[in-house]
């Protein structure tokens, strides 16, 4: 952890060398998700509600997924750009250093300009917290925290899978975007609106709904079941098979060196 912070400090220092660029990119990141917000606004301007969810409820859901996604994007970005790390030989360098590979990969790329997106998430959060009509008792606050942390873990797991695939092929990994970018994009609405099959898929295969739909129902008071609130913890376990897959990837890399 101390080493990770050291890495973070050195990366912050280098990104601050180009201040204008940094702030422009941050602003850009902010605007990217702002257009998503605007799109939702236009939709609700026309339709008022979707499957019984009001605009402010959906905004709460949106801000939670955006926050957890941008946290993952900010700190786990090393995996997102992993094909580059392999092809430019940086991974060989990582392998000749006496530290855990995952830590080094994570630490080698921390994109602070992604804070633009995080700010967007937080701004929407601040708006949605009073507007959503949720009465903020302790358990509701805990639910939100679990949702964000759970989301961070699941998105990180997806990035790890993505990176592990890079060990086998560098082509055609686009389809992972369905789960990472798509998860963020479509997760702005509770997954139930897409129909039962989609919800099942995001429960049992890629557990995005575990930190989104189920605890969200508890949050806005549609259900009293305490299990819903705790499901994000189950979602965090998703990281375990992802880590296993990563180990397999490393073994493959060691035998092909490609």
């Amino acid at each position: 952890m101390k080493l990770y912070l050291k890495y973070a400090a050195i990366l912050l220092k280098s990104q601050m060398q180009y201040k204008t660029s940094f702030f422009m990119t941050t602003l850009g990141q902010f605007l990217v998700s702002f257009t998503v917000f605007l799109g939702m606004y236009f939709m609700f301007d026309r339709f008022q509600a979707v499957e019984g969810f009001t605009f402010s409820e959906v905004l709460l859901c949106f801000s939670i997924i955006l926050t957890s996604y941008s946290l993952a994007e900010c700190f786990v970005r090393g995996f997102d750009t992993f094909s580059g790390i392999i092809s430019n030989g940086e991974f060989d360098r990582i392998m000749v250093r006496p530290r855990n590979e995952i830590l080094q990969v994570l630490a080698s790329r921390i994109e602070f300009s992604r804070i633009g997106r995080l700010i967007q998430g937080i701004v929407v959060f601040i708006y949605a917290i009073p507007a959503s009509g949720v009465i903020w008792t302790f358990d509701k606050i805990l639910t939100v925290v679990l949702m964000v942390v759970g989301g961070f873990f699941v998105f990180s797991g997806l990035y790890i899978i993505y990176a592990s695939l890079c060990f086998f092929t560098t082509e055609g990994l686009e389809f992972m975007n369905i789960f990472t970018d798509g998860g963020k994009e479509f997760g702005k609405y509770p997954f139930s609106i897409y129909g039962e099959e989609v919800l099942k898929f995001f429960t049992y295969v890629i557990p995005l709904a575990l930190f989104q739909y189920y605890p969200f129902m508890y949050l806005i008071g549609r259900t009293d079941r305490i299990t819903n609130m705790l499901l994000p913890i189950l979602g965090m376990l998703f990281i375990l098979p992802c880590h296993l897959f990563w180990r397999i990837g490393i073994r493959h890399y060691k035998s092909t060196g490609s």
Binding site: Y18, T20, S21, F23, M24, T25, L27, G28, Q29, L31, V32, F34, T35, L38, G39
Partner: peptide, 17 residues
């Protein structure tokens, strides 16, 4: 511009929308 990435991100998101 001195910040190509920033301009690009900005232009792209506006254009997309």
């Amino acid at each position: 511009t001195i910040s190509p990435v920033g301009i690009r991100v900005l232009a792209v998101s506006t254009l997309e929308f």
